[in-house]
């Protein structure tokens, strides 16, 4: 057994009474503040990632803007503008969270945090605060483009706003949780954006966001019905389009109970995936 004399000769650390560990909530809030600062200070992310859905809306919306109205009275670009809110949420909740966590794993953020007394929950509270703030900003930006450029009508009925509230909440929770789980799919932070964009783009096309759902092949609609994006788009159309527009939906109604059911189920699936797959560090070869 080796012992040492040099060490013992040194001044012993003072005996301090044990101070309480800081709470998860307090650490989570300060993580959230830091996440928001870091996000808005990285100009490229704000300009190219955050604004991207609004840019797509502006371009495709203008292409669809033929002056004709669809059965039910709204224009094609209005339908598109309402559906695009689903893309906005995928962007700020699913993709940004997935890419952000993969990057945190790669650049040492998670490893460094793991060596401190902070809890994993505090880290996730920070991410959730970031998602909440960026998603609200994203939705506001998309609505502004929709209203100003494509004459989208904001609802006056408070129940529509209530519907918007719960669909937004369920969508954000589901997308964030699945995004956290998906961050593990990418082997490195560098290719995370590429890996995560594929399902996002595929679901935009098959779920009636980029192309009106009434013109999609039957099989595609059936498959897409298992994923949240279709129901998010349908939910947002129910809020921002007149009820006469149910004519363009698959079942001829908004199906809000199904929207709630599917999105709720994805929240549960997302949570389970997170618990099973979350890693603090990058996967390493042997």
């Amino acid at each position: 057994m080796t012992t040492t004399t040099q060490g013992a000769a040194r001044r012993a650390p003072q005996n301090r009474p044990l101070a309480p560990l800081p709470s998860t909530l307090r650490n989570g809030l300060s993580r959230g503040a830091a996440e928001i600062k870091m996000f808005f200070r990285s100009k490229e992310a704000v300009i190219f990632t955050f604004s991207f859905p609004a840019f797509v809306l502006l371009l495709l919306g203008s292409i669809f803007d033929t002056g004709e109205t669809m059965p039910g009275g709204a224009s094609m670009s209005q339908v598109f503008a309402a559906s695009m809110i689903a893309y906005g949420i995928l962007n700020t909740a699913f993709t940004s969270v997935g890419v952000g966590i993969a990057a945190d794993r790669e650049d040492g953020t998670l490893k460094r945090l793991r060596g401190t007394p902070i809890t994993a929950s505090a880290y996730f509270i920070g991410k959730i605060i970031l998602v909440a703030v960026t998603t609200l900003a994203e939705v506001a930006l998309l609505l502004a483009v929709g209203v100003v450029v494509f004459d989208l009508q904001l609802p006056t009925d408070p129940t529509k706003w209530l519907t918007l509230g719960w669909i937004l909440l369920l969508s954000v929770v589901a997308c964030t949780l699945v995004g956290i789980a998906a961050s593990g799919l990418a082997k490195s932070g560098k290719n995370a954006a590429t890996v995560l964009n594929l399902p996002v783009i595929a679901l935009q096309f098959t779920s009636g966001v980029f192309v009106a759902i009434s013109s999609l092949p039957d099989v595609m609609v059936k498959v897409a019905a298992f994923f949240p994006v279709r129901w998010m788009g349908q939910g947002f159309r129910s809020v921002f389009l007149p009820d006469s527009m149910t004519a363009g939906e698959v079942s001829g109604s908004w199906e809000l109970p199904t929207v709630a059911l599917v999105l709720g189920a994805w929240c549960v699936v997302g949570l389970l995936l997170c618990l099973v797959t979350f890693r603090w560090t990058e996967r390493r070869a042997g």
Partner: peptide, 30 residues
């Protein structure tokens, strides 16, 4: 809370200032 680790390679928190990062971490400890 009783150990401190100086990592070998980390490039995190690039967009925070030195003081912001250090006071952020101070808040994690009792």
């Amino acid at each position: 809370a009783d150990i401190g680790i100086v990592l070998q390679t980390a490039t995190d928190a690039a967009d925070l200032t030195v003081r912001e990062t250090i006071s952020q971490f101070a808040g994690y400890y009792p």
